[in-house]
Design a protein around this nucleic acid. Structure first.
Length: 183
DNA sequence: TGCAATGCTTGTG
DNA sequence: CACAAGCATTGCA
């Protein structure tokens, strides 16, 4: 099973994305260099414009960024995730749509892979935080729609990552463009 | 306002 | 392979 990489131009503050596809679908998508490391390496796609998968990905992403598409509806290859991570990511991808958000704790609860006791909730939230931080499928799995119970929460990649998260949430209308969340 | 806890991920030895 | 440390957090004191 081969993994092929290609770049996708985006209007994101972080610049173009790196996307990897297999015969099954999109296996990885990194907005910045954050997730790029540690992901399965593979040859660069010779001519992305001639690869149907790459073309579709670019098309969908472009429409999404333009606000014309609510769901990317791209085939996803989940091989990088397993066990609880897989459950959480799929739950997130399946139940949290464009323009809506969910808290770390709620997502953990909804995934059902963690205990449902009140104390396990805090721990589950951290676990989910870890999982999101290592999520190799930025955008395809809406990691940016997961927020803290009392605010925005964080995002991988430091300041650049936060900027990206705000950018995405603003695009989806979750955040008012003028609202200052820096506090 | 500040701290302790709990599980999963990831980086070394 | 085994071990240890850190979190994109929460909830209570």
């Amino acid at each position: 099973m081969s993994v092929n990489w290609f770049s996708v131009d985006t209007p994101l503050p972080t610049g173009p994305m790196r996307v990897a596809v297999t015969e099954q679908g999109v296996v990885a998508a990194a907005c910045s260099a954050q997730g790029a490391a540690g992901l399965p390496r593979g040859p660069e796609l010779g001519d992305p414009d001639r690869d149907r998968r790459a073309v579709v990905v670019k098309e969908r992403l472009a429409e999404y960024f333009a606000g014309r598409r609510r769901d990317l509806e791209l085939p996803i290859d989940w091989r990088l995730a397993a066990g609880p991570q897989l459950a959480v990511l799929q739950t997130l991808q399946r139940t949290v749509g464009f323009g809506s958000t969910i808290t770390y704790g709620k997502l953990a609860e909804r995934s059902g892979v963690f205990g449902d006791g009140p104390e396990e909730r805090a721990l589950a939230a951290q676990a989910v935080g870890s999982i999101m931080g290592s999520c190799p499928l930025s955008l395809l799995v809406p990691c940016h729609r997961v927020v803290a119970a009392d605010g925005l929460g964080g995002f991988g990649g430091g300041a650049a990552g936060m900027e990206l998260k705000r950018w995405l949430l603003t695009l989806e209308g979750v955040l008012a463009p003028t609202l200052d969340w820096s506090s």
